[in-house]
Design a binder for these strands. Structure first.
Length: 634
RNA sequence: GCUGAUGUAGCUCAGUUGGCAGAGCAGCUCACUCGUAAUGAGCAGGUCGUCGGUUCAAAUCCGACCAUCAGCUCCA
């Protein structure tokens, strides 16, 4: 008998030679059926592996993220096996599990079509049905290279050559198919429930655009049909929330062929935007910021001085004025530097918080444009804070708190990343280390978990990024806090210290929305177009039952307008049902239905968006309720 | 920028082997004066993304370009 330590610390005795699968089955019939992989001392192992004594084991099922990853990873091997059967000349690259599914990259002359995906799926079903055992095998480095060279898999050979030569290489076999793989995997191909291939797209080998572009097939898999159906339905629902679709339907914003990447804001979208900016202004005034506006076009010499000419040129637009070179600003910082330098500053002014809603233009490559999320001109809700070195941590904490307050107002959860010195950077390593330490310290004080992104900082300093997700689960950077020791140097910023000497201030750049355009795109998807009343372009829509109610409607509308409520009147000769439908489709928070009863009793019938008829209220009651809801920003 | 797909009325989409450009919704006009998610009838609306080629004839076949979509790469 050998003792196994379970998750809860208890000891389970199993017989010599038993596998992890036997242990799982021994614990409970259900676990034996549902266990996908064993987690032994924190490391995932195949269920077929022999159970080892005195080790702490737990079992992952599809309910666990790790179980799902293994499940999808084996699914990707199913895909690869099917492709090799149908297209033997296809070369295998890599095929990992990803969030919600898996992919596999292939190199082949044939370009996969959606019809091919159906055929590949059929082949995968055969492989599943055959229920091949998935068998792990370990080879030496040389044996592995020889094996994949013989199989004609150059990408696999390249991968093995990147591995340490003195270590064993693991491979997995299922039927006639063999793949280089770290594992672990499900015990057999029949363990995969239902799967679907979703799309095919190009992807660079090893993620570098210098390398060959391969073909990537995306798919997903679930144990039960109802789960995959639910997943596919969720994706459909997400598409309905796409801000590009809603922007068009609700007449908020759009882009035209005449200006790829340069979005238009229509009157209704502009209303939301102005509300966002109004909220932003009042919060910044409260937090001690002053607002400036710097010009969109500035001279070449400025951009050379700021480093943008050397480090950011490929993203900038240029023009000539009277034979001199100018550039359209891709960032607001140099403008803020010029503002700072327009007079002498004292340490007593610090921290000096200078905010700017600055319109920047950046040349983005055509393939990356995406509605309002990725555009060629956008408005950063920027601010530059000038301060003493000892004020850094407090100021960063202040900005983190402000970002949190903003995102909470909209009901967002977010992810934080810290990015360090990139290859193409200005400034010494010492300066960078100091800056990174300051950012880390602020995050530690706030106890915010974050992901470290080595080498992902801006060319002038490290940054803390705040990421929000769109309706399809894609993540977009919005807020960012960037420490900058470089620009104060380049622009020779100074202040008069308490001992009367000139010193160098420290500066941070920060944005909260990030880009107002992107933020509005994300907001649109977040609310599915049903904006809370403080943001809704039309807050109340007044509907008449018949033409004789027009006068009463106009009178009420006038009173609501005087209260600062955004209203529309629909007094067309249409049925009430038709007008209500239209109001609901336009996602107006409140509809007021006015007919004989309301005129008679001098009331309004209130219909709340997506809830329905709320009954009759006096106009004053309704106004009070609406104003309360607007001020609550809910 | 790269790989693949797509581009027909304001929107969503039909359009067969090349042979007169179509529907629904929206818009406009008329009738109905109506009570909580679509009243009926009529009218109008199109360089078929752009440019070029093949053909007696091109929305349809070929080429180039532009834009969009998915993904990759790159970034707020």
């Amino acid at each position: 008998m050998i003792p196994i330590i379970l998750k809860d610390g208890s000891v389970y005795e199993t017989t010599e030679g038993a596998s992890w699968r036997d242990v799982a089955s021994g614990l409970s019939r259900r676990l034996g059926k549902e266990a996908l992989v064993a987690k032994v001392d924190g490391k995932l192992e195949d269920l077929d592996k022999k159970a080892s004594p005195e080790e702490k084991v737990e079992f992952c099922t599809f309910a666990d993220e790790e179980g799902q990853a293994v499940y999808r990873h084996t699914s990707s091997h199913l895909l690869a096996q099917a492709v090799k059967r149908l297209y033997p000349e296809a070369k295998l690259a890599i095929g990992p599990a990803i969030a919600d599914g898996f992919y596999y990259d292939f190199d082949t002359e044939h370009s996969f079509t959606t019809e091919d995906l159906a055929l590949i799926e059929e082949e995968m079903k055969k492989i599943k049905k055959a229920d091949y055992p998935v068998v792990r095998q370990e080879l030496t480095h040389e044996e592995a290279i020889a094996l994949f060279e013989e199989k004609g898999e150059p990408y696999k050979v390249e991968l093995i050559k990147d591995l340490p030569a003195d270590e064993q290489v693991s491979i997995y076999k299922q039927g006639e198919f063999t793949d280089l793989c770290l594992g672990p995997h499900l015990p057999s191909t029949g363990k995969i429930g239902v799967f679907k291939l979703l799309s095919v797209a190009g992807a660079y080998w090893k993620g570098s655009e210098k390398n060959k572009m391969l073909q990537r097939i995306y798919g997903t898999s679930f144990p039960k049909k109802k789960d995959i159906d639910a997943y596919l339905q969720r994706m459909e629902e997400a598409k309905r929330r796409d801000h590009r679709k809603l922007g068009q339907e609700l007449e908020l914003f759009g882009v035209s062929d005449e200006g790829p990447g340069f979005p238009f804001f229509y009157p209704k979208g502009m209303t939301i935007r102005l509300e966002l900016e109004g909220f932003w202004r009042s919060e910044h005034q409260k937090a001690g910021y002053q607002e400036i506006k710097s010009p969109v076009i500035l001279s070449r010499s400025l951009w050379e001085r700021s480093g943008h000419w050397d480090h950011y040129k490929e993203n900038m637009y240029f023009l000539k004025i009277d034979d001199d070179d100018y550039a359209i600003k891709p960032m607001n910082c140099p403008g803020a530097m010029i503002y700072y330098n327009n007079r002498v500053h004292s340490y007593r002014e610090f921290p000096m918080r200078i905010a700017e809603l600055g319109l920047v233009h950046r040349h983005e490559r055509s393939g990356v444009l995406h509605g309002l999320m990725r555009v060629r001109c956008f408005t950063q809700d920027d601010a530059h804070i000038f301060m003493l070195p000892e004020q850094i941590t407090d100021e960063i904490i202040g900005v983190i708190d402000m970002i949190d307050h903003f995102y909470r107002t909209f009901g967002f959860t977010y992810r934080v990343e810290l990015s360090t010195k990139p290859e193409k950077a200005m400034g010494s390593d010492e300066i960078w280390d100091t800056a990174i330490n300051a950012l880390e310290k602020a995050l530690e004080v706030k106890e915010i978990p974050y992901k470290l992104n080595e080498g992902d900082g801006a060319f002038y300093g490290p940054k803390i990024d705040f990421h929000l997700q769109d309706s399809l689960g894609r993540s977009w950077q919005c807020g960012t806090i960037q420490l900058d020791f470089v620009n104060p140097e380049s622009f020779d910023l100074t202040y008069i210290s308490d001992d009367g000497s000139k010193k160098r201030p420290v500066m941070i750049h920060r944005v909260i929305f990030g880009s107002i355009e992107r933020f509005l795109g994300i907001l649109t998807e977040h609310y599915g177009g049903a904006f809370p009343i403080w943001l809704a372009p039309v807050q109340v829509k007044v509907l008449t039952v018949a033409s004789r109610h027009t006068e009463y409607a106009a009178d009420l509308a006038h009173k609501l307008e005087k209260e600062g409520i955004r209203i529309e009147v629909d007094d067309r000769n249409e049925r009430v049902g038709y007008k209500i439908r239209e109001g609901e489709v336009q996602k107006v928070p409140f509809l007021l239905v006015l007919g004989d009863q309301e005129v008679e009793s001098q009331t309004v019938s209130v219909r709340k968006r997506s809830v329905g008829d709320q009954g009759a209220f006096t106009l004053q009651e309704f106004i009070d309720n609406v104003k309360e809801e607007i001020s609550q920003k809910t």
